[in-house]
């Protein structure tokens, strides 16, 4: 895993849950929540959990404003770009405008090889249901940030109705993208309740606990 992982993807592709799970499992120093698009279900709502896991949360500059949808974030988000001792995960917002927030930090970037720019995909989201649409999404992110997407996350799911076959179908579609762009599938997300899936999915198996959306959701 590279020192900095940036996670992009349409809303509903699981960016925030993936960011929090990766940060905890990989003992990352900083979680930078750059989501200025969603008003609910953001990784910043887990400040206590992150603190317990010694993960420094960077969010908006005004503390306690969980009910704010003002599009601002702390300049502290630049720290992992200038201090090469700090590992970080950047959790982006889902739309073109959500991704744009990242640009302000990129001119401080010292070594592009220290960054993984991943795109999380759920083929059950209508905007990323086939290879063509996924390629369009990725080229939009690349055009906005001027960064190459370096890997894919297969987060195919229907929440409580996910099946192993569904994830395999997600992998088939993502493989088309992977071949076309010559980038790997870095993670396949498997939820806690699907641990018994036998199929050997591409990339590292990321066992995911849903922290943000409660059970009854």
């Amino acid at each position: 895993m590279k020192r900095i992982t940036i996670i992009s993807g349409h809303y509903g592709s699981g960016k925030s849950e993936i960011s929090v799970n990766l940060a905890i499992q990989k003992k990352i120093d900083y979680l930078v929540d750059l989501d200025i698009i969603n008003p609910y279900f953001r990784s910043r709502s887990l400040d206590k959990l992150l603190e317990e896991n010694n993960i420094h949360l960077v969010e908006s500059t005004i503390k306690g404003m969980t009910g704010s949808d003002l599009p601002y974030i702390s300049g502290e988000g630049v720290v992992p770009f200038v201090n090469s001792n700090i590992s970080a995960i950047y959790d982006l917002g889902g739309t073109e405008n959500g991704v744009r927030v990242l640009i302000q930090f990129l001119d401080r970037l010292k070594d592009i090889n220290e960054i993984d720019f991943l795109c999380s995909v759920n083929i059950f989201r209508p905007e990323t249901s086939d290879a063509k649409k996924i390629l369009q999404t990725i080229s939009m992110y690349e055009a906005v940030t001027q960064l190459k997407v370096t890997g894919l996350i297969n987060n195919t799911n229907l929440i409580g109705e996910t099946t192993e076959e569904g994830i395999i179908e997600g992998e088939r579609i993502l493989l088309e993208v992977s071949k076309k762009l010559k980038i790997p599938i870095v993670y396949t997300v498997i939820e806690e309740n699907s641990k018994n899936y036998k199929y050997k999915f591409l990339g590292e198996r990321l066992e995911l606990t849903r922290y943000i959306a409660k059970r009854w959701l």
Binding site: P39, Y40, F124, G160, L217
Partner: peptide, 10 residues
């Protein structure tokens, strides 16, 4: 309510 607007579901 806002939750129905913001939540994800199949």
């Amino acid at each position: 309510d806002g939750l129905i607007g913001q939540m994800m579901e199949p």
